[in-house]
């Protein structure tokens, strides 16, 4: 996925001021930055939920900048928003069933595998999603896109409002998924643990622009990362 000069925002309010970044196949890339710098806005713009006012988004070298969200999703993008956005009055199983919409024709969902990663979802298959804890909702939101076998997932602050031990669990699951299925991961995060556990390299965003790129070595130094988060 390549993003060039992407600008977007809300109505008259520009937020993204020309974002350039690139995510290679099978990579785990983080976008980090303080609150309110435009991380979630970037994710929404990548998904097509916000229109791009300038710039380009290329997926597998195809220009998808003007493609509507549901078509973009069916090209193999799985979006896991900040706040999870599970369907609160539907059961866990029904939430997962919605994810089947992402499947390419001729493929079928592999629920056994998904329940292997997230056993708690199997236990709670007939429970309403709105009654799950934050960590369980996060797992459901991830599982819901995995049902559709995406090539790339966009993960917005997966650690937000979740206990530290569950953060570790989710990081390990995402790492396994990346290794076993070759899943490409672009995630947004402020939580130092999650960034260090998961990211292979990372972009720093501030005021709607990418201001730095950190390599794997840079990510080994927590103090350096912390400095960028406090930028």
């Amino acid at each position: 996925m390549q993003i060039q000069g992407l600008r977007s925002g809300y109505g008259g309010k520009p937020v993204l001021q020309g974002i350039d970044l690139e995510v290679g196949k099978g990579e785990i890339v983080a976008v980090i930055g303080r609150n309110g710098v435009g991380k979630s806005t970037l994710m929404r713009a990548l998904m097509g939920l916000l229109p791009a006012t300038a710039g380009q988004i290329l997926i597998d070298d195809k220009d998808v900048t003007q493609v509507s969200p549901h078509k973009r999703a069916r090209m193999g993008i799985g979006y896991i928003p900040q706040g999870r956005d599970v369907f609160p009055r539907m059961t866990v199983a029904e939430n997962l069933a919605v994810g089947e919409t992402l499947l390419k024709p001729g493929t079928s969902p592999d629920y056994d595998r998904i329940y292997q990663y997230f056993p708690v979802l199997k236990e709670r298959a007939s429970q309403r999603a709105g009654t799950l804890s934050g960590g369980q909702q996060q797992q459901l939101a991830i599982a819901r896109v995995l049902v559709g076998r995406p090539n790339i997932i966009l993960l917005d602050e997966p650690s937000e409002g979740i206990q530290p031990n569950i953060v570790q669990d989710i990081a390990r699951n995402v790492r396994d998924l990346n290794r076993e299925l070759g899943l490409t991961v672009l995630f947004v995060e402020q939580n130092l643990d999650m960034i260090m556990l998961l990211a292979q390299h990372c972009f720093v965003i501030d005021k709607g622009q990418i201001v730095a790129r950190l390599s794997a070595e840079d990510l080994n130094d927590p103090d350096a990362v912390r400095r960028y988060l406090a930028l």
């Binding site: 939920l49 549901h70 928003p81 369907f87 029904e94 939430n95 069933a97 919605v98 919409t101």
Partner: peptide, 24 residues
């Protein structure tokens, strides 16, 4: 039915339904 589940998803969280590939 598939229609029913997608219709309920669409009324509950519209932007998420479309981000999951549902033609709302």
């Amino acid at each position: 039915t598939r229609y029913g589940i997608l219709a309920r998803a669409t009324i509950q969280v519209p932007h998420m339904a479309s981000a999951l590939g549902v033609n709302t």
